[in-house]
Every structure is written in structure tokens, then in C-alpha cells.
Amino acid sequence: MLALLVTALASLGTAALASPSYANTTSLADLALQKVLQDAAPMFGNYAASNATTASWMASIADSTKIVHMNIPGVHDSATWNYSVATQDSLDHVTALDGTTPAPPEYYRCQEKSMIDMLNAGIRVFDLRYAFDTTNSTLVFWHSEALLSETATVEDVMFGFYRWLDDHPTEALFLSFQYESSTTLYGTSDAAVQLELFATLTSPAAQKYILQTKDQFGTLGEARGHITLLRRFDFDQLPAEYEAAIPGVHFSPALWTDNSPDITLVYNSAKNLTAYVEDFYDTNGPMGSNASLNIQWKYNATTAHIQKATTMYPDSLFWTWASSEYTSNIPPETPKMMALGNGTAYTPLGGVNQRLIPFLRQQKGKRVGMVMFDFFDVPSNLVQTLLDI
């Protein structure tokens, strides 16, 4: 960590050190951390601690509470919040290097609030999609062929999470890492990518903040102040000792059924520990099916899985993804339309998010598990409704 901070400090330069934003900083480590957080800002947002009750909502929950018994809000494709026409245009010169042509930004954008805003609003599970940049040398964030930032690296963003945990030690975070394929023409999860991710997630700083347990969920007391890795990636291009050394819960992509409303995934065969997952992200409706129908089909899959969580397998993890799209239609049902509706008579009940509010209120006192949202901040009481169950 010290080496990284010193390198970051050196990159500040004399002018930056003299600037007002650094004038009151007295510690060498503080200066370097400010530089790292500045680099992370296009993905993490501008760092700010918060006294909002949602920023420390876990403080009132007993240490003995099992993670699998909790109701925890999360966000799908969290790094897409800053992906706009302006972002896409600013990165065209990079993505053009290997001939990729992203679709319009609304096909990829799944959030509108920054990661720091998500944290302060109560979000505790983050879906993070990584791959090499176009030079095949640095881990950055993508959504399919959409490069989300040229400069904010995965390691930079991790320091944002570390700093936030320092400010909110009662909280526990869950970071889901997934290799994003279909990024560049020659992008692949090869040994170099896997080595870079391994180095990032096992650095001295990572070892301090990432919970060093493997393939099991414990209690909130054990998880407080730490990150639990949800590993939706394999180290299949590396020697076996790398897999043995990486902490976290392994959800192998080979076992995660694509576009399924009902996934049963054993993540610890020795102890027969199983996760139940709903990830029905593309409704696959027939051409011409309208937005209201597609939203209804997604809502049905999401609520069916949450109902299962309230009644079945109380000591297993339930992980529900309320996120979706149906871009085969013209015009497409983008993630935003599926989550929020389009404000017209075509979606009279709104999107999945609006429909979930009364449903979640009916689950008072029950376990619903982890629930991942697109555009989590609309309606404004969506996250609080889940926390109030």
C-alpha cells in the first residue's frame, strides 16, 4: 500500500501540492490517498462521508445476525452511473483503437448516482464488471463494449471502498466481481487479466479490508468493517495455488446459468452450501411485445424468487436481481425503462421498481436476501422500503 501511495504522491506534481484542495493536508499518506481518490472519481464519485442514517444502517443490527438472514440492497452494473453521451464521445478515440462501436449510452446505463452516493444511501452489494483497457495492461470498468472510464482503475476504486469503511466501521460491503467479455476485439480473461485481478485483491491494503474467509458467509459481526468478495470469476488460466489463495465466495461463471429466473448454485460442496439466484435479465419476449408486458414478466420472476426467499431454505443465500432490459424491440426497452417505465400510457404502473414497493411492504418481518436494483434511487423510498422489512 505504501508503495502505491508514494507513487501516487509523486504523480501529484508541485502545482497540485500547492492547490487549495491539498493545502490543509499534513500527512504524506493523506496526500497520496487524495490523489488515488481523485483518480477514482470518474467511477467512484467525489468522496464524501455522510451522517445519514442509511450510511450506517447496519449499526443497529446484532453482531450475531447471519448474513444469509439479512435483507441487503444492492446495485446492478454500478460503474455505469456516469456513462452518458459526453462520456462516450470523450472515449471514442480509445474504443476506436480496436474497432469497437458501442451502442447509444442508454443501452448500457443502469444507474444515475455515484458509488459514494450509493454507499451513503444504504447500498451494500455492488456489481462490478472489469476487463483490461484497450492496451491490455490495466484493469478498468466496462459494460459490454462500453468503456466506462479510461483513467479510473479497479485498484483506484477499491481504495474508495477502503476509505469509506474507515469512516463507517459498523458496515459490511459485498463486492461482486465479474469478468466482462465482449469488450475489445482481443479481450479475454487470460492469465494476464487474472494475475492483475489477483494482485489487486490480495495487495496489503486488500488483505486488511477484504474478509479472509473462503466460500462461506458468517455473521454480521465478522463482516463489519470488511468487504466480502462475491467471486463471479474463475482463475482457470493460473496455477491452482492462486485459486487457493484468493478469499471470498466463489460463484463460478460455469455454474451461473445465463438469463435464468431460478439458479441453484453450490458454492461450497464440502459443506453443501447453496445459493439461490434469480438473474432473468432479458425477458426474451416475442418481437412486438410491449414494454408493459416485458416489465410484468420481469416483475413476476423477481417477486417469485423473493417469495421463495421468505419461505424456503432459511440458512441459504438468496440473491435476486431486479435488473433487466429488452433491447430487441424498437424502440428498445432499456434498463431505465424496465426499471422505471417510460412515463406514458404504455407503462401505466411504472417499471419494476415502482411495482416492487407495495410488494416489499407486504413482506414485513421476513427474510428476502440480497436484492439488486437498476436506478436504485427511484422511487426515492425503494431502498428504505427494503430496509424496513
Rank of each mutant, 00 (worst) to 15 (best):
K364G: 01
S316N: 13
H305N: 05
R355V: 03
T320D: 14
L349C: 03
M337N: 07
A309Q: 08
N342F: 09
K308N: 14
I330T: 13
Q307H: 06
W297I: 00
L356D: 09
Q363T: 03
G341K: 07
T347P: 09
H305L: 02
K308E: 12
G343D: 11
W319K: 00
N294M: 12
N294E: 14
G350P: 06
Q307K: 12
G365Y: 04
T347Y: 12
L317I: 05
M338Q: 14
T347F: 13
A301Q: 06
A301I: 01
G350W: 14
M312V: 04
Y299W: 03
T311R: 15
I295K: 09
K298D: 01
N329V: 05
M312E: 15
T334M: 14
Y313F: 08
L317W: 07
M337V: 15
A322D: 08
T302K: 01
S324M: 13
S324V: 00
G351Y: 11
L356W: 08
Y313R: 09
P331R: 06
V352W: 13
L317D: 06
G343C: 08
G343Q: 06
N342Y: 10
N353G: 06
I357N: 13
L340R: 10
L360M: 10
E325L: 11
R361E: 12
T320L: 09
T334G: 13
S316D: 14
H305F: 05
Y346C: 03
S323Y: 07
P358K: 05
M337A: 09
T320Y: 08
T344S: 15
